[in-house]
Design a protein around this nucleic acid. Structure first.
Lengths: 187, 187
DNA sequence: TTTTTTTTGTGATATAAATCACACTAGGAA
DNA sequence: TTCCTAGTGTGATTTATATCACAAAAAAAA
C-alpha cells in the first residue's frame, strides 16, 4: 500500500528495506470520505500529505465566495497548503476530497527530522521541489500567454486522466475560466 | 562582493569561512552589459545565476513575437531557465540585462557535487526551493483571482523597489496586462 | 423506483481588457 | 546642441470572456 511512496522516492534515490521502513515510521495514515475536508481555511496546517488513493482539490475562496483551484492531487501526488505548512501559519486554502481518499501524513517536524537524519531523503525532497517549481512556472506561462481554449487543451494533454474524474466546472476553476466559457470551448 | 551570497545561505544555515570558500570555488563570475543576453532561446543552459549586482528579466517570446516576463531578478535573486537547467534541455526563455549586471554562475554539475559533498548546502537549496514554490503559488493565485488593477497593487506592495528600476511596459508584461491598460490603471 | 442535487449546455447581455492609432515626453547618443 | 529611440498617456473600437438566466441531462440519494 505504501509501496507507491517508496516507488516515488526511488525514482530519485534507491532505498534499502530498512531505510524505507525508517522513513515510513515518520508518517501517519489517514482515510477520508468523499466531501471530507483535509484542511480548512484558518486551520493550523500540521501535515503535508502524500496521496495513496483518491482525489482532492486545494482551492482558495475569495471574498465573493468564488473558488479558484490551486491544485488537484491524485495518487502519487503531494498536497497541503504549502505556504501555511512551511511557514507554520494558518491555512488560506481549503482542501477536500472529490473521492474517498487515503493519504500518508508527514508533519513538518518529522520532515525536518528525516531530512537531518538522512541526507538521501533531503536530496529526494530537494529534487521533488525543483520539479514542482518548474511545473508552476509552466502554469504561470500558460496563464500569461494562452487564452482559455489553449489552456484547456494544454491541461487535457498534460493530465488526460484528470478529465475522467473531475467535473468540467472544476476544470474551469483550475484554468481560471468561467464554466460557461469552458463549456462553449469544448464543443 | 560575494558576501551577499554568503549572507543568503547563512539565513538558512551558518557556515565557517572554510566552508564558504569551498562553496564559492564552485562558482564562476560573469559581468554583463546592459542589453546583453545571459541566455537565449535554444541555448543549452549551463548555469544557474546568483545576481550580485544589476537587474535582469527572464521572458518568453510567443509565436506572435509578444513577450511575457517569467521573472525579474535583482541583487540576491537567482535566475536561469530552470526547466532547461534541471532537465538539461534547451532554453525556451530569454534572459537579458536591464542594467549592467554581475552574476555568480553555478553549473548543474557543481550544484549536484556541492549538494552531495555538503549536506548543509543541500539543506539550504531545499529550503530555498520550497520558498520559491510558495511564491509561485501566490503568483498563480493572483493571476486566477485578481483583475489587472489588483495584481498591479499586489506587485507594487510586494516589490516596491522594482518600480523605480523597471519601465511600466515591462511591469505590464509581468502582470499579463497590455501596457495601455496598465497606464490607465495607475492614473 | 422516485426525488433531489449536481453537472452541463446555450442564449442574451454586460464588461474588462486588448488592439489600433497617434501624440507627447524624456533620456542617450551623435 | 540636435537627433533619435524608448517610454508613456489617451481616445476609439474590437474582442474575449464573465455574468445572468433558464432548461435539460446525469448522477446521487431516498
Amino acid at each position: 500500500m505504501s509501496q507507491i511512496l517508496r516507488q516515488q522516492i526511488e525514482k530519485i534515490t534507491p532505498l534499502t528495506d530498512k531505510e524505507f521502513e525508517y522513513i515510513l515510521s515518520h508518517f501517519t495514515f489517514k482515510k477520508l470520505k468523499k466531501h471530507q475536508f483535509l484542511i480548512q481555511e484558518n486551520d493550523t496546517v500540521q501535515n503535508d500529505h502524500f496521496v495513496v488513493k483518491g482525489l482532492l482539490k486545494a482551492y482558495y475562496v475569495n471574498h465573493e465566495g468564488k473558488e479558484h483551484i490551486m491544485q488537484f492531487a491524485m495518487e502519487d501526488w503531494w498536497v497541503t497548503d504549502y505556504q501555511a505548512y512551511f511557514n507554520q501559519t494558518v491555512a488560506t486554502l481549503n482542501i477536500d476530497c472529490l473521492e474517498p481518499t487515503e493519504v500518508l501524513c508527514l508533519s513538518i517536524h518529522n520532515r525536518e527530522k528525516l531530512c537531518a537524519d538522512m541526507h538521501k531523503i533531503e536530496h529526494s525532497f530537494r529534487k521533488k521541489s525543483n520539479l514542482g517549481y518548474v511545473a508552476l512556472q509552466r502554469r504561470i506561462l500558460s496563464l500569461l500567454n494562452s487564452n482559455a481554449k489553449e489552456r484547456y487543451e494544454q491541461l487535457l494533454q498534460q493530465y488526460p486522466t484528470l478529465f475522467q474524474r473531475v467535473p468540467k466546472t472544476l476544470i474551469a476553476s483550475y484554468l481560471g475560466v468561467s464554466r460557461e466559457t469552458l463549456s462553449r470551448l469544448s464543443s
